[in-house]
Computed example of a mutant assay.
Amino acid sequence: PIKKLDVIGEKKGSNIWVKLENLNPSGSLKDRIALQIIEDAEKNGDLKKGFSIVESSSGNTAIALSFVGGLKEYRRIIFLPEIVAQEKIRMIERYGAETRIVKTGEELKDSSVHGSFIEVPGRIMCKEMEEKESSVWWARQFSNPSNYKAHMKLGEEILAQMKNKINVFVASVGTGGTLFGVAKILKQNIPDVKIFAVEPAEASHVSLTNFKIIPGVTGGILKEILDSKLVDEVIKITDKDA
């Protein structure tokens, strides 16, 4: 569903709507990408019965892959940075996935580190595991086109619910899938719509304003966003404001 924020909107003199993606089965919009990524891989023959799904995630994608992958009876191995909250780890394990905690180093323990960068050490482990074992499939949410493909469907939902009356779309940026997928659809249908990306002000690593490529483990969708020039402005939010 989509909900109008009457009180905040009145204070700001604007009509503000939010998409309630927290009402998805495992609690976030990441259910969309988990289902799309897994089913596309099955159709392509990359993911087969008896395979293990591996992924590096700082939370919601891990939960969603654990949930969807469990329904499809795959073994799931999730690499999590050591700063992840214990309740998220417990939720992942309740869905039957295996968790492996990855030491991140002191520089990555900052609460404002970019979500996509905190997952890099785990991505390296996923890459190594996939290269060594033929029955291991790495979901690669950071670069998998199925990620933003799922969110293009979300964009179509938003368009229908808002009857094509949208001036501005705002989304936070992790892997960039939500922003990229929705923005592609909105710009195709409403060329004048403004797209705003939100990220931590103190993030000093991979982001839309401070971009670094590590072959095989960064880039992906974030680079596609930069190349597409779909984003009109990047908004940086401080820890204090957050």
Rank of each mutant, 00 (worst) to 15 (best):
D110Q: 04
K149S: 14
Q86W: 15
E73D: 11
G174R: 11
S52E: 10
D6Y: 03
D192L: 12
A197R: 08
R123Y: 13
F117A: 05
D227I: 05
G70W: 15
K127E: 11
I225L: 13
I78V: 15
K3P: 05
L65W: 14
A183M: 10
T238K: 10
A97H: 04
G115E: 12
V168W: 07
E130W: 02
A139K: 09
V217Q: 06
N60G: 14
G216V: 14
A201H: 06
V182L: 10
G69A: 07
K165W: 13
I118M: 04
G219Y: 07
S207D: 08
E130S: 06
S134H: 09
R32T: 01
K103P: 07
E42A: 07
A97S: 08
E202T: 03
Q36E: 12
S58W: 12
F142M: 09
K72Y: 11
E39Q: 11
R123D: 01
E131C: 09
S28N: 00
P25G: 02
S58T: 08
K187C: 12
S204N: 13
F79M: 15
S135A: 01
L35D: 03
G176Y: 08
Y74S: 10
T209Q: 04
S146V: 08
K109S: 03
E224C: 06
G216C: 04
I185F: 04
S135C: 02
A203H: 02
S52T: 15
P191E: 09
A41E: 03
G69I: 11
V234L: 02
N60I: 01
L208R: 04
K11D: 03
S116A: 15
E107L: 07
V198N: 06
I190G: 12
G155D: 07
S172P: 15
E55H: 10
E119L: 10
K149V: 09
